[in-house]
Design a binder for these strands. Sequence first.
DNA 1: TTGCCTGCAAACTCTTTGCATTTCC
DNA 2: GGAAATGCAAAGAGTTTGCAGGCAA
Lengths: 144, 144
Amino acid sequence: MEPVDHFRGFLKKNGLAFTSARAAILKGIVASRGHFDADALHEQLKRVGESLSCATVYRTLPLFVQSGIIKETLRSKGRARYEPAWGLEHHDHLECVACGRIIEFRDDELERLQDKVCQRHSFRPVEHRLGIRGYCSECGKKGT
Amino acid sequence: MEPVDHFRGFLKKNGLAFTSARAAILKGIVASRGHFDADALHEQLKRVGESLSCATVYRTLPLFVQSGIIKETLRSKGRARYEPAWGLEHHDHLECVACGRIIEFRDDELERLQDKVCQRHSFRPVEHRLGIRGYCSECGKKGT
DNA sequence: TTGCCTGCAAACTCTTTGCATTTCC
DNA sequence: GGAAATGCAAAGAGTTTGCAGGCAA
């Protein structure tokens, strides 16, 4: 199933309308393969000729989160950031403090270990975020 | 060495002054054993009779981070949160989405595994944050 | 004395909200 | 037609900054 179909279903189920603005935002999300924030998404849509107010973007993003199309990731400089979640497995992030590059990775053993920690504390996990900040291979070569 | 001595050394080394405001903030940090945010710290200091502007708190916190007295942790509701880092081993967090309780834990194997992931990507880690959100044992009992 | 510090208030950034109007079903 | 969605602009929260005066070294 395509994201758009899933999203239409989600809207219908909740008595919400599939509007042109929402269609545009979804297109923007799909186009920006990777991480983005509200402002970047808004800018991108403007570039493509879609004119939406940023209020609409902010009002709509939670719908995409709820429907599972995207998810919030670590905030950066006070901005909420998102990434596509549709059809993707969970993964964690390496974030380069020098160039800002984000490297995604997944490690099953790491996941299992986290579950063990939760069990040990009788904690029922809903979600987790692991972010490792440091220097990527490129920036690491250059020094410091 | 006491935190205050370490901090004085840090200031001296950087040509900065050890002022009464900074002393008060340090006392506040030490007193609030655990997590806090700028606002909570400011409130606590007011309660003890110290009158500082919040601008000073905001301006001073980065000094404590740089000196290693505290460190930033996961943000919550748009607020930067901090915790003491002086003399404490690194640890990670379980955060209850129901009651807000934060449980700290440390798992050496988890740490090692993270290093392995970094090696695999030729990534030199500086710091990492692992936050697991879910329901603590208390809230888990009550339902949902 | 020479800067660094501070308080105050205004500015800023990201995000949310109220209201009148438009769009969807 | 009626509920829901939108744009606009103004409000909010948390945080930062400019400036004039105050303190540490």
